[in-house]
């Protein structure tokens, strides 16, 4: 089922993709000889083969691009985590953010909401502010990397939307995070150059 849908899509996209990937255009079918008694079966077969090859190449290219876009989206949506009561970007988070920056540079239409979260310790209102400060840290990092602040919005859910319900360090570490919600331009994600 999935395969058929992919094939269908590839046929539709075929014409565009061929030009995009610089493949050989299919040869013109030879003009029929006026005196020929019947159709030239060999040249017709060659023509059909070349069309099929081009379509398959286009399908492969489209699939590859789909995969790259999906991967880029995954990176864009990947959470980053924080230390207890901290809003500083950790080194592990920084490498994730750098990958996001490369994608966002290639995807100027994408708009993202940065949602900060806190673990359950500390007061409810303070944690709302802490979550916002974490989102703001990410925004500041993006700004330093030359991304437009206007493409982002920061907000916070405080401690109200934990990923993990436990009351232990493992759960808390998961819950201290910024989530990346694509609010617009989700169809215009381009893989990093």
């Amino acid at each position: 089922m999935m395969y058929r849908r992919l094939l269908l899509a590839s046929v539709v996209l075929g014409g565009l993709a061929v030009a995009a990937c610089g493949g050989e255009p299919p040869p013109e079918p030879p003009a029929p000889e006026p005196q020929a008694a019947g159709p030239d079966l060999d040249s017709l077969r060659a023509y059909e083969d070349s069309v099929r090859a081009a379509q398959e190449a286009a399908a492969r290219a489209a699939a590859e691009r789909e995969r790259a876009i999906a991967e880029a989206r995954e990176i864009l949506e990947q959470r980053v985590h924080f230390d207890y009561d901290e809003s500083a970007i950790r080194p592990d988070a920084e490498s994730v953010l750098r990958q996001k920056v490369a994608i966002l540079r290639a995807s100027p239409a994408v708009r993202i909401r940065l949602e900060g979260h806190a673990d359950e310790r500390g007061s409810v209102e303070y944690n709302q502010a802490l979550g916002n400060r974490r989102a703001q840290s990410v925004l500041d990092f993006f700004g330093q990397q030359g991304l437009m602040a206007g493409n982002f919005q920061t907000t916070s859910f405080g401690e109200e939307r934990p990923l993990s319900a436990g009351s232990n360090e493992t759960a808390w570490a998961q819950n201290r995070r910024v989530e990346f919600v694509i609010t617009a331009g989700g169809g215009s994600i381009n893989p990093a150059q």
């Binding site: 209102e125 709302q128 502010a129 916002n132 400060r133 989102a135 703001q136 919005q153 920061t154 907000t155 916070s156």
Partner: peptide
């Protein structure tokens, strides 16, 4: 822009005070 949070009435009952974070 920003997060609007922690509202409280002033004792006059007319004004609400609150924090805006971010933005």
């Amino acid at each position: 822009p920003g997060d609007y949070m922690s509202p409280a009435y002033h004792p006059d009952g007319e004004f609400v005070y609150f924090a805006i974070n971010g933005g």
